[in-house]
Design a protein around this nucleic acid. Structure first.
Lengths: 149, 149
DNA sequence: ACATCTTTGTCAAATTATTTGACAATTAAA
DNA sequence: TTTAATTGTCAAATAATTTGACAAAGATGT
């Protein structure tokens, strides 16, 4: 159980991560994924990826986090020997996984308590457990533990 | 239980999110947080925030996701009426929460199953439950549910 | 083996975004 | 009211990206 201050902090934190909408320049994506800018423009030309730009937001390509994950995934399959179009197909099979995974934590973060070396995070109620919540105990240099309370 | 293909996908996905290291330009941060570039440079001057640059990575300021969260949090406190130094202090109280929260999901993602409208994600074993795992059922337009299996 | 197609690299000229330094304007504190 | 802190604006310079073009490399098909 976090105290009142932590609840406010979490509310603020949740608002930020829930609404975070950041974009990367092509150079940033290239460096972060190891895919050259030339490749990125070609993939765009082929219709595999899309920058996210509105007309009032500058003339440079800007990519979302979702697109970053997609690009990294395509690259990963390419490295495995897949052809480009196959890599794109494999990537698209679960193109919503990233949204789901990160969306999960953004939705489920209820509260947190500061503990020695880290945090205990309340992820909310678990079905069929008489109202028990699942907590993640996250400490530096230790494997995260999950427990019910 | 995901099948063999999904386990490989998750491994790849985990590798990407675990090692993701992306950086934002100052314009991107400014747009994403609503904090002007002038302000960001002033906060840097004051020692409150730091771009992350190595000498071989260009001359423009580049900020990490962690720094993005910090900046957004400071802005949030400022909007609440705190002085800049107080906002920074409040933000620094839990400067590791972001790392903990996102680190949790990166560490704990075990596997996933595609279900109608979304995914069922296995987050691994829960203490004192005879080896049961906690699953998140994430579907579009539905609240995420957690259950033990 | 050769021809064709796809993909990636390189480069120049132009454009856009960021930098620094400086000063002004606004806001907050004493 | 004065002083200090914070933010806005601007010019000149520099860095990063754009587009178009062509070359080079790699893959595919006959």
């Amino acid at each position: 159980m976090g105290d009142k201050n932590n609840a406010a902090y979490v509310t603020r934190f949740k608002d930020i991560i829930k609404n975070e909408h950041f974009l990367f320049g092509i150079g940033d994506i290239s460096k972060a994924t190891g895919v050259s800018q030339r490749k990125l423009r070609y993939w765009e030309e082929r219709g595999y990826i899309h920058p996210e730009n509105s007309s009032d937001e500058g003339q440079h390509r800007k990519y979302s986090h979702f697109m970053f994950l997609k690009i990294a995934m395509i690259q990963s399959f390419l490295k495995e020997g897949y052809t480009l179009s196959a890599a794109v197909q494999k990537t698209n099979e679960h193109h919503k996984l990233g949204k789901a995974v990160f969306g999960f934590v953004k939705e489920r973060l209820q509260n947190f308590t500061f503990v020695p070396g880290g945090y205990e995070i309340d992820l909310g109620e678990v079905n069929d457990t008489q109202g028990k919540h699942i907590y993640a105990l996250i400490r530096s240099n230790k494997k995260t533990e999950l427990f019910l309370k």
